[in-house]
Nucleic acid binder design. Structure first.
Length: 423
DNA sequence: TCTGGGGTCCTAGGACCC
DNA sequence: TCTGGGGTCCTAGGACCC
């Protein structure tokens, strides 16, 4: 038996934690660069504002309904997420943190000692009490059904906050009018295909023909169908696997023509990517970098390019990776364009303790490894970017737009809320 | 004016081997 | 006219997730 706990309107709820005056007020949270809506409070969902719309397209509604607008504050959301997760895992030793606002927990055997609905209601109550974040919980025999149950809480059983698909009859009854496109693993393309063939509900998908599913939706689809039938095919992933690729990219706050500023931006992304690589204890054997103009500006000349650079040996040294990234940049760069975005991928990741020796090139020295370690420790202590490479520059002319950023209430001493007491 | 970022898995098809 | 059979590895592209 699994449960999926999911934070309601997570980013919007985080903004309310230290600003209770926002309770019951419409809130949207924007993507990086204050571009698109990536999170909405219930009030905004009720207004019919869709996920992912660009802010400029809803300017009128924002004004009309006094919608509070926030830039995304991942420092805050990440910290609140950790608090929610650690509260929940006190109730379930086996769990998988699936995303910033979702956690699967293993409830196998719990039904012998507890009423599962009451147990999950208590989790909800304590999470709300400890963190002020409202959550919903779906309980079912497979992860896919737990996802369905979780969605049903929001659609049908909001007041309960918990939905338990206990028997096969419950499942059939509730899947009967559950839209096939709302199932975990059915995206836009599969939804279109399934509906074209008359499979428009979860129940119909559950009863679909196996070989047709395998042929059209591959083994992934077949697994999904079996999960709907109550046959667990997707296990709890308790230890997150090492990343196989690491990507760091950002749009610029303004369009950029100057290669000097591109150097600063790309080397900063290369440095961040190297930090991530060291954090998971891996090396990269090759990187690729990309550079692109603003694809929405059809009035401007467009350019996109990407370059793959083989590293002489597997490394996680920032200096090596920055050097390779810049080499790629010089190969790609063409003057006369206004650029909007660049980024780096680290590929062919291998464990850092298994470096293949190269007969002709000397691999990273102990000295370099110590240097990176020291830099990482200092940046952890004093904040990202406390120590950086000169090529990263100091002006950050390329930096993101985030004009509506709330404070880092829980992670920056200077921004911790103050309370005046008149005793 | 203005349009996000970071991942995974699977399959088909080509290149190559004997 | 007519041209085998079986396998691996790699990559690009397409699907999905948050």
């Amino acid at each position: 038996m699994f449960a999926l706990a999911d934070c309601n309107n997570f980013y919007a709820s985080c903004e309310r934690v230290f600003q209770p005056q926002l309770e019951n007020k419409p809130i949207v949270v924007l993507s990086n660069n204050d571009g698109c809506v990536v999170a909405r409070s219930q009030e905004v969902k009720d207004l019919g504002i869709k996920m992912g719309v660009p802010l400029f397209q809803i300017k009128e509604q924002v004004k009309l309904h006094h919608i509070r607008v926030f830039s995304s504050n991942y420092t805050l959301y990440g910290d609140i997420s950790n608090r929610v997760m650690s509260t929940i895992n006190q109730y379930a030793p086996n769990y998988e943190v699936y995303s910033i606002d979702e956690i699967f927990i293993d409830l196998k055997g719990f039904e012998k000692h507890y009423n599962l609905i009451d147990y999950c209601k208590e989790i909800r109550y304590v999470v709300k009490r400890n963190t002020r974040i409202p959550i919903s919980i779906g309980i079912a025999p497979t992860k896919t059904l737990a996802k369905v149950a979780n969605k049903l809480v929001k659609k049908k059983f909001k007041a309960d906050g918990v939905c338990y698909l206990k028997t096969q009859e419950d499942v059939k009854e509730l899947l009967k009018d559950f839209d096939v496109g709302d199932i975990w693993g059915v995206g836009r393309q599969y939804e279109k295909l399934l509906k074209k063939h008359g499979i428009d509900t979860a129940l119909k998908l559950m009863n679909a023909n196996d070989s047709w599913i395998k042929k059209n939706l591959s083994v992934v689809g077949l697994r999904l169908v079996n999960e709907l039938r109550g046959m667990p095919c997707i296990e709890l992933d308790e230890v997150p696997a090492d990343k196989k690729n690491i990507c760091v990219s950002r749009s610029f706050g303004h369009m950029i023509a100057d290669v000097k500023i591109l150097e600063e931006s790309l080397s900063t992304h290369a440095n961040t990517a190297s930090e991530k690589l060291r954090k998971q204890g891996s090396n990269a054997s090759s990187i690729s970098v990309f550079l692109q103009t603003n694809r929405f500006r059809s009035d401007l000349p467009q350019y996109f390019n990407t370059k793959q650079i083989e590293l002489p040996f597997a490394t996680n040294d920032s200096a090596n990776i920055i050097k390779a990234a810049l080499k790629g940049l010089y190969l790609m760069f063409r003057s006369g364009y206004l650029y909007k975005k660049c980024g780096i991928y680290l590929n062919e990741l291998t464990p850092a303790n298994e470096v293949q020796l190269n007969l002709f090139v000397e691999e990273d020295s102990e000295k370099k490894k110590k240097l990176n370690k020291a830099v990482d420790i200092l940046n952890t202590k004093w904040g990202r970017g406390a120590l950086k490479y000169a090529v990263q520059g100091t002006e950050k002319k390329w930096k993101l737009k985030n004009e509506c950023l709330s404070k880092s209430f829980t992670t920056k001493l200077a921004e911790v809320p103050r309370i005046n007491l008149n005793l």
